[in-house]
Design a protein around this nucleic acid. Structure first.
Length: 272
DNA sequence: ACTATTTCCTGGATGC
DNA sequence: TGCATCCAGGAAATAG
């Protein structure tokens, strides 16, 4: 499940491989779910455009483009991986994986392929005003603004962390890991958490996301980066996926509860 | 303006 | 072994 560190890793890998290349043609599959923009709009933006760079915004991969027509407008191709999405850079002769929904042919002779079995991923394009993720970037947001995000919210802090309109990029794994490191139980109402605790959460979130990026993300089920490499942060998980295993600090069994339909893991002793 | 719940998807795990 | 059922979860849609 790609969250901020996984998407950052993938975007860096893609940037290394396709920056400076040019799009020759685009093939889109027949399934409609993966397309957030119309097929015509996606092709119009992508075909003959140059790739200026690839970056992450929240959980989105953003390809910065310069259109191939005489206007040379800037535009973006935006890929959201959902649960099981992958963006691969392949040689043309490599066999097409099942559930390939888009193939972008490059002037270098290679192809960017979007593969997504579960079809929760989304492709879109933007050419006016650029693209911005709706929430604040967790690695950039200053403490005072971070604290303000949760003011007056009755929803559990875990749900608030997952709300992409507040923070962009935090998903189930890193929400649980950050709450553990900050010593805050996931079910606590966001508004009930003190500024001091929120300061701990702010720091914990930055630390956990930063460490995970350094380790290439967490490989759960089938995640691999743009080069097919697995991440290693799953080895540092302290609560996520560790139900009934001993807390690394106090040996208490890690509990799993469901909040807003999402499994949430915490230590009943270390987290208050 | 919020918050909670439901829905979309398929592969892998589980149960009988 | 085979078949049915359940579960994972990001985000949009729907309901309250």
């Amino acid at each position: 499940m790609p969250e901020l560190p996984e998407v950052e890793t993938i975007a860096r890998g893609l940037a290394k491989r396709v920056t400076g290349d040019r799009v020759e043609s685009v093939w889109l599959g027949s399934k409609k779910e993966p397309l957030k923009s119309s097929p015509g709009a996606i092709c119009a933006v992508l075909e003959r455009s140059s790739i200026l760079g690839v970056r992450r915004a929240g959980k989105h991969i953003v390809f910065d483009l310069q259109t191939g027509d005489e206007t040379k407008h800037s535009a973006q191709w935006i890929v959201h991986l959902g649960m099981t999405g992958r963006v691969l850079v392949c040689d043309v002769q490599e066999t097409l994986a099942a559930h390939t929904h888009a193939v972008v042919k490059l002037a270098s002779g290679r192809e960017i392929r979007f593969v997504d079995p579960r079809r929760f991923g989304r492709l879109s394009v933007s050419n006016e005003g650029g693209f911005a993720a709706p929430g604040a970037e967790p690695l950039q947001v200053p403490l005072d603004r971070f604290i303000y995000l949760f003011r007056g919210r009755k929803t559990p802090i875990k749900s608030a962390l997952l709300n992409q309109r507040l923070l962009s990029g935090v998903g189930n794994i890193y929400a649980d890991e950050a709450l553990y490191r900050a010593g805050i139980r996931p079910r606590r109402r966001a508004e009930s958490i003190s500024s001091k605790e929120l300061a701990r959460l702010h720091a914990a979130l930055r630390k956990v996301l930063g460490e995970a990026i350094k380790l290439g993300g967490s490989s759960i089920s089938d995640y691999v980066d743009a080069d097919g490499e697995e991440g290693f942060f799953q080895l540092r998980h302290r609560v996520y996926g560790r139900e009934d295993e001993p807390c690394r600090a106090c040996k208490t069994r890690i509990k799993r509860i469901v909040i807003a339909g999402r499994s949430s893991h915490y230590c009943p002793v270390c987290q208050k």
